[in-house]
Design a protein around this nucleic acid. Sequence first.
DNA 1: TATAGGCACGTGGAGCCCTGTCT
DNA 2: AGACAGGGCTCCACGTGCCT
Length: 759
Amino acid sequence: MTKIWLLDIGYKPGTSEIHLWGIKDSGERILAVDRSFRQYLYTTYGDKKMAEEELRKFHNLRLEKVTGRIFGREIDLLKIFFEDGSEDVNKLANRLRRRGLRVFEDDIRLSSKYLIDQPVKPSSWHDVELSEHDNGVSEISSINFVSNEPIPELKVLSLHMVALPTKGSPNPKKDPIILMTLVDSMGVTYLEGEESKILQRFVEYVQERDPDVIAGFDSNEWMWPYIMERAKHIGVSLSVGRGGSSPHRSLYGHVSIEGRASLDLKDMVDEIPELQLESLEELAEYFGLRKIEEFTELTDPELPAAWRQNLQLVKNYSRERAEAIYHLTTQEILGYAIALSSLTGIPLDHVLTAAVGFRVEAYLMKEAHKRGEVIPPRRERRPSGYVGGYVWKPKPGLVEDVVVLDFKSMYPNIMVKYNVSPDTLIHSGEEIKDFYEAPDVGHRFRKEPPGLYKEALLRLIQYRDSIKERLKKVDQERKKILRAQEKAVKVITNAMYGYAGWVGARWYVKEVAEAAAAWGRWIVKTAAKIAEELGFEIVYGDTDSLFVKNIPEKTSLLVESIQRRTGVEIKLEKHYVRLLFTEAKKKYAGLTRDGELEIVGLEAVRGDWSRAAKKLQKEIIEVVLRELDVEKAERIWSRRTRELKEGKVPLRELIIWKKITKPLDEYAVLAPHVVAAQILRDKGFRVDVGGKIGYIVERGEGKIRDRVSPFPFVNKENVDLEYYVEHQLNPVVERILKVVSQNFAKPGSRKMGLRRFMS
DNA sequence: TATAGGCACGTGGAGCCCTGTCT
DNA sequence: AGACAGGGCTCCACGTGCCT
């Protein structure tokens, strides 16, 4: 018996031969082949003769009569195995469908199916029965999951690449790679000189050091495709895979390297909503590695000159990024990716790239399989919305001493409590006596048996509790692993409700999400009613939270009453000394009891306002909330306005960043950032969907979009300072002062204060 | 290879009215 | 007097990014 940690999984195309790349507990890296698995699909066989007729046309099929469940309903099925080891299920599935039969699980890739079907988990330890063959290949005769701990020592290589653009962004058709910087446990290696030499040495380096993980930033969409095209162009064989194969584009735009995990840290950016620029530098700052300003800056237009005149600058630029990638990977991201991979069953290689919905789905597929549920096919559906959470309208102005009550994991708890699940929904005509009925929308769910969502959620909750228990007892190093696991579990748990309402989900049933939302509204409104009955004043509330004016001697009674009546756990989450509400929902600022200033939803926390405006708004809020001094706030306002008008504000603070969310020619309206992006594109720069465009507004007549200038082609001389006063500084300040001036400014001075800068 | 809905808010675009100018 | 271009205005859709 051998112990193997599963790093990567693949299969030989056209066959049922599963390739498992693993790490033995001795540290040896091996490829083990499993030839025992067979691809299969299910079909209904309403007309038995017809099914048999079709099946006779195929050789080497093995049939099994089984009973499965689809959305909780029992159904008789034929399970059809492809005994000849082929994995071509499409042909058979299509034929059966053409005959009007229902077919299931033909749309799941072989390696995914293996992971769902077998006691095998990626990024985990297994007991394996191996037989060695002469050709060095090990064959598996049995494999069993053991544990997802400990995590073996993985060899990580990080990679940063610089190409020399002739015009705009580097173009892989003509612009060579001039530098590659590699970082691993041995330190930094620069590959420079002739491009073919760089690539050859890169391949040698990978073969020699044989890393398990290769990490980059924007490597799936940009770096790997670039390297691959250059290698092809100059005729270098890019055999960096463990079997000697080249990298290849696999599913969903991901680039796979055989036997290794290729990670793109850019995928991590989506998981951290706090990030506004979504850059590597910002990611590094977020994890406390290095501040954005401490990175050497080098934009594409500056690169050619720097390459000629200041080689060291270019090398520093590249090294800093390669090091950041290495440290982020080893210290922050790899552990999380491993935990997520082991939990969802998605191989390490893919798990960061996979969108949230697909992670949840991967987890559900395994749960469903355990319960004897057949996995429903993915289907095209028309999106149709439903009513979501309830939001109170706040009273604008200041309010003191407010406590916030939060329902803990409201939607997961609702789904567990009321057994809300696609397989427990009662359809019209069904006569079930024992049911829960959702308020408002009237959907009914049977109380027994527990549904797929309920069981999946309970298992997750249980797992998280056990992690929390263990966290109390273990040492620092193990704590880190457990925290990563906890985070992974949390991500999946919290996404379950959203998944339920996603039209692309295999288990999409609109009534499920709609009912969960309805129960949510009922619970939070019931809580509000209880609070009011007890004499509390509701200040605000959003979906699963209630802001109430504090009555210290009654808060614990309030919490108890709400929990008793609604049956859902509620927590006293926050205590604000003072809160400021604007006229809008979802926008407020507060001072907590520990003296922290919190800003929610306002421009100061939005990424699409200039830094100048954001900083000023924060200053104003700070002075208003902490010092209750509106006049001082107005003085700051006028000082900042003056500074801006006198040109004392750095250009960088005036840049407005916005995301490009679709191809430029699909925009119906030419917004300023779209025009800025067009200008960049026309200069030969890459404008990617999902990329951020920075621009400033220049002086001139007419529409804003007709006078934008994209970063980095901005010139301080041309900035329309008046625009920044009128459309950036003034609105964000006025939004705040408008709601407090009557309370705090002396009579008479208020209007003065506000009007002074308005016209 | 899109987890959901609710919400604010700047900007552009369409359409309307008004007004001044030309015929 | 009537036609019409163009400015100013209103209203709404688009687009982004936030909150829970």
